[in-house]
Design a protein around this nucleic acid. Structure first.
Lengths: 184, 184
DNA sequence: CAGATCATGTAACCTGTTACATGATTTC
DNA sequence: GAAATCATGTAACAGGTTACATGATCTG
């Protein structure tokens, strides 16, 4: 249940609603984690029941009331404890590689179409990281003055960029190799 | 439902039992996909009901009967169709990066311990790919004579290696950066 | 006038993991 | 004597996605 800890993490910065948290996910950690509102809301409710959060209601006439969640000391302890737990290597699931694995039954041109498509996706993703995501992070650092934390935010972005660069290299190398195969 | 297509892929090579298929998963595609027997068995049953597979029972006295699954023409069509569908960029979930993102609240040495742990895991994984997995693939190519297919099997391994190299580089760079930070 | 933003949720579904059940044979 | 191999499964649970429901205000 990593979602819980991501929520605790953001709430350790400041009290927020579920809706606010979803925005933080979209703008800061989308490149390695995200969640839908339909998952966030019930999770916050459960975390409140567990004593990790408290909730204040801000009444609104025109919209549903804002439910502002605050982290408790117990929540802070649990977050800190989780952050210190050594993490296993992530397990990978890439259905695209299943396609590559069984691509022997396809014509060269069909495999190449797949690879060129992936290449384009990863090139676009890389640009998005280097521009949009990087800007979001920098804006956040300036808006909050959280310089030390910001260094860690940037490190996660660097990993995202490294991933995409790896994909792009592999796609390019693979396209060349396949072009060199004889299509018996 | 990529599991279905991975099963169809292996069964397009030759008829097999669920147990055999699990072994193929472990030895060939574990670095980007895997499944438990408890998921494979019911999936095969369902695929048979869908007409993608047929089943022969080989009676055994001492062990449960072997249920050997064969791919049907319909199964082959569905596999081929899926292989041609352009794939979206894989979505990533790396809980370790949540830890990095919120590492600002930790002491330098605690963050470094995490990173050194990850570094070691990825170094070990890389060696495993370069040795064990590569050997499995080569043995399979020799045992089956599937040279053209084998080229694609190797390409997926190359991607696994590229991933691990990326992780290792990032860990090393990150460890240096963090060592250079002042721990206020 | 359509679509995004704000703001909350519930319900059904899909995928995958863990635990449990059985049991003979082979290997260390 | 313990653990791995062969061979099948079921049941409960966890996590995440998609669809549905509501509704005002703001933006293009």
């Amino acid at each position: 249940m990593s979602l819980k800890y991501a929520l605790l993490g953001f709430l350790s910065y400041q009290p927020m609603t579920g809706y606010d948290l979803k925005q933080r996910f979209d703008h800061s950690i989308d490149h390695f984690w995200n969640a839908e509102l339909s998952q966030i809301y019930p999770t916050l409710t459960r975390m409140k029941e567990e004593g990790l959060l408290t909730m204040d209601v801000e009444f609104q006439d025109d919209k549903p009331n804002r439910k502002v969640y605050h982290i408790t000391n117990s929540g802070r302890d649990e977050l800190r404890h989780w952050l210190l737990e050594l993490e296993d290597a992530p397990q990978i699931r890439i259905s695209f590689l299943i396609k590559v694995f069984f691509a022997g039954m396809l014509k060269k041109e069909d495999v190449l179409a797949q690879l060129q498509h992936q290449l384009a996706l990863h090139q676009a993703q890389l640009v998005d990281y280097q521009e949009t995501v990087r800007n979001h992070i920098h804006e956040n650092i300036e808006a909050t003055g959280m310089k030390r934390d910001g260094e860690f935010w940037e490190l996660t972005l660097e990993m995202g960029i490294k991933f995409e660069e790896g994909w792009i290299e592999w796609c390019e190398e693979t396209i060349e190799k396949i072009e060199g195969m004889n299509d018996e």
